[in-house]
Amino acid sequence: MKNPTRYGFKVGDGACCGSGPFGGIYSCGGKRGTAEFDLCDNASDYFFIDSNHPNEVASCQFAELWWEGVVKVASPYNLKLLFKLKVQAK
């Protein structure tokens, strides 16, 4: 969130769609009875699509880290190694 450009985003501390500070109020599309909300032009620029969900690019980055991430990220095993160990145990 502090260095969004490092991960391919322009905005890391605000949502593409929502209201309130940082777009953190889940009001996208009129949710929660809120008629007014902000919507960005390019969701790919934002780490968060709304107050709760990272965008598709961020989700893919998470999936890659969980699949092949180092121990510091995916501990004690990443998913690739975990599945490999499971197959070997059979």
Rank of each mutant, 00 (worst) to 15 (best):
F22L: 12
F62P: 03
K2H: 05
L82W: 09
D13N: 15
G24I: 01
E68I: 10
D13F: 02
E56W: 09
Q88G: 14
D13M: 03
P21F: 05
V87T: 08
L81C: 11
S44H: 15
K31Y: 05
V57Q: 07
F83S: 04
A15W: 11
G24E: 03
Y46G: 00
D38T: 15
G30H: 01
L39V: 13
G18K: 01
K72A: 11
T34W: 11
T5P: 00
G23I: 01
W66G: 01
L79S: 11
P21W: 04
S75W: 13
V70H: 14
S19Y: 08
C60W: 04
S75T: 11
G20P: 12
G14S: 14
T5E: 10
S59I: 08
Y7M: 06
F48M: 13
T34Y: 15
S27T: 07
Y77E: 15
H53V: 09
L81Q: 15
K10L: 07
G24F: 02
K72N: 12
P4R: 03
D50Q: 06
H53L: 07
V57Y: 06
L81H: 08
G18V: 01
W67T: 03
F62D: 07
G8H: 07
C28W: 02
E64T: 04
S19A: 15
V71Q: 13
A89G: 03
N52G: 13
P4E: 06
N42A: 13
P76F: 00
A89N: 09
S51Q: 11
Q88A: 12
V11L: 00
Q61T: 04
F9Q: 00
V71L: 10
F83H: 07
L65I: 05
R6H: 08
G23K: 02
K72L: 08
G30Q: 00
V57L: 06
C28T: 12
S27R: 01
D13V: 02
K10Y: 07
D41G: 13
H53I: 06
I49E: 12
D50M: 06
A89P: 00
F62R: 02
E56I: 08
